[in-house]
Design a protein around this nucleic acid. Structure first.
Lengths: 129, 129
DNA sequence: CTGGTTGCAAACTCTTTGCAATCCT
DNA sequence: AGGATTGCAAAGAGTTTGCAACCAG
């Protein structure tokens, strides 16, 4: 948590209450969140502030934008581990995948990849019954 | 092309001009298109008609929705081959990838996967210079 | 103090829908 | 003929921005 606060300070941005709340929300959530979810979780913070805070966090590379197969954009804290997700279309559970094809695709296509999506949606084991 | 026309007929939908134009546009394009692009290419067809046509085509499984890393939704005709894409963030060139992790992810996670995104964005070889 | 930030409200953009006129079959 | 479909226009939904009041440093 300290680490994240420092990233904000070092970017020159002020450590305001809305920013602390949004950061805390991202920190305690164990899954990527939509702007709407973050807004709901941060009482007394305007949606526009959540929007601008996430925009800032994305710019200073504190959070990462993730597009799921349900076409909703979510955000989560950048962590040391790069990972992808699978979301249950029934209960909404979000799990992480231990797989990423980035380097394979780069060498195969000779592209210099700057962004990628690798997300799945389906029924989790318990929702298949 | 005949094949696609038949899918439309068999679904019970009428073969109208707007539908033919949209189909033709998807057929000749060798990359996924956005609704806006399709609309531009189909003169005298209202955007709402493009919208509804694509919605219909998706429902009868004639086209497939694709979400790229640039967060724009595109559509392309369902073909025998299931494939994914990489888009150049500089020139917009879209290429296909010969790789798909569907079954690997299914067996690893025990999810029953219904939908997935596997898309990349970066600089194509010629735009890296 | 003072520029960066917030909340509010409004502007935009994109998506979706109601409805009368029109078109396939 | 008659229901499906279209174009138009407008409603919704989600995103983005201007601005005066406010706050962290």
């Amino acid at each position: 948590m300290e680490k994240y606060l420092n990233v904000i300070k070092e970017s020159g941005a002020k450590l305001t209450n809305p920013r602390k709340k949004v950061l805390h929300n991202l920190f305690t959530a164990n899954k990527p969140l939509t702007l709407q979810e973050i807004h709901q979780n941060c009482s007394r913070v305007d949606f526009a502030s959540v929007y601008r805070t996430i925009k800032l966090f994305t710019e200073i590379n504190l959070v990462e934008e993730i597009t799921f197969a349900d076409n909703k954009t979510r955000y989560e804290l950048v962590s040391k581990l790069h990972h992808h997700h699978i979301i249950c279309s029934s209960c909404g559970e979000i799990s992480q995948l231990p797989i990423c094809l980035l380097s394979e695709i780069e060498s195969f296509t000779n592209y210099k990849i700057t962004k990628h999506i690798l997300e799945f949606m389906g029924l989790c084991p318990s929702c298949q019954n």
